[in-house]
Simulated scan of single mutants.
Amino acid sequence: MSFFNHHSLNLPAAVLAGGLAGIVSGLVKLGWENVLPPRTEERDATNPPQTLLQQFGVPEKLTHATYHYSGHALPWVSYVMHFGFSTTFAVLYQVLGEKIPAIKKDAGTWFGLTIWVAFHLGIMPAMGTVPSIKDQPKTEHISEALGHVAWMVTNDLVGDEIYRRLVAKSRQ
């Protein structure tokens, strides 16, 4: 077995499949966080996407902007960041995974854990967006690690199925 997959990549199909998978997996990750919240209510008062934007100079008035649905004030800016991250990495996973199958080992479990380590244990603590590793509660590590696995396995399943269908349709 070769490290690289030598079949031709249908890039438009991979991008569309990854984008759609990223939306679905973003919903899965939001649901996951409702069952196992990664942060305390106090730390969620300004969540990591809001903190990151504020670090780049976006005013709090915008980062905390909400829309209302069914009596709830929902943070639309956080959702834009959440789904932007989810779809970006789902597209990257789908495109790279078609050319380098090792990326998709164990249905994306290792890719998801790698993203968690890179961002939640490396980049965001280094930037001061979230506390240092030792100052994050164990419950946050558990929720985020398992949530990233569920997120990426969803990307793998949904993205692969959509890609397979799009490629089959393009051959008809």
Results as ranks from 00 to 15, higher is better:
residue 111 F to S: 07
residue 135 D to E: 15
residue 100 I to K: 09
residue 32 W to V: 07
residue 31 G to W: 00
residue 106 D to R: 15
residue 72 H to W: 06
residue 163 Y to S: 08
residue 55 Q to K: 07
residue 35 V to D: 02
residue 21 A to W: 05
residue 152 M to K: 14
residue 29 K to G: 03
residue 65 A to S: 12
residue 154 T to Y: 05
residue 150 A to M: 12
residue 35 V to P: 02
residue 143 S to I: 06
residue 132 S to I: 04
residue 139 T to F: 13
residue 164 R to V: 05
residue 51 T to R: 14
residue 152 M to Q: 15
residue 70 S to G: 13
residue 20 L to E: 05
residue 126 A to N: 09
residue 98 E to M: 07
residue 84 G to Q: 04
residue 10 N to S: 02
residue 89 F to I: 10
residue 90 A to L: 06
residue 46 T to Q: 08
residue 81 M to R: 10
residue 46 T to Y: 08
residue 33 E to W: 09
residue 68 H to A: 12
residue 12 P to H: 09
residue 169 K to W: 04
residue 52 L to N: 08
residue 36 L to S: 04
residue 17 A to S: 07
residue 86 S to I: 01
residue 144 E to S: 12
residue 20 L to S: 07
residue 22 G to N: 07
residue 56 F to S: 10
residue 116 W to G: 00
residue 50 Q to Y: 05
residue 31 G to L: 01
residue 18 G to V: 13
residue 101 P to N: 01
residue 7 H to P: 05
residue 65 A to F: 03
residue 41 E to D: 12
residue 105 K to M: 14
residue 53 L to D: 01
residue 47 N to G: 11
residue 135 D to A: 13
residue 6 H to N: 14
residue 21 A to P: 12
residue 128 G to C: 02
residue 168 A to K: 12
residue 55 Q to W: 09
residue 97 G to C: 01
residue 65 A to P: 07
residue 69 Y to I: 15
residue 52 L to R: 12
residue 75 P to M: 00
residue 93 Y to S: 05
residue 103 I to L: 12
residue 17 A to P: 05
residue 79 Y to M: 14
residue 157 L to T: 11
residue 46 T to G: 10
residue 152 M to C: 12
residue 60 E to G: 02
residue 93 Y to N: 04
residue 107 A to C: 14
residue 170 S to K: 11
residue 18 G to A: 11
residue 58 V to Y: 04
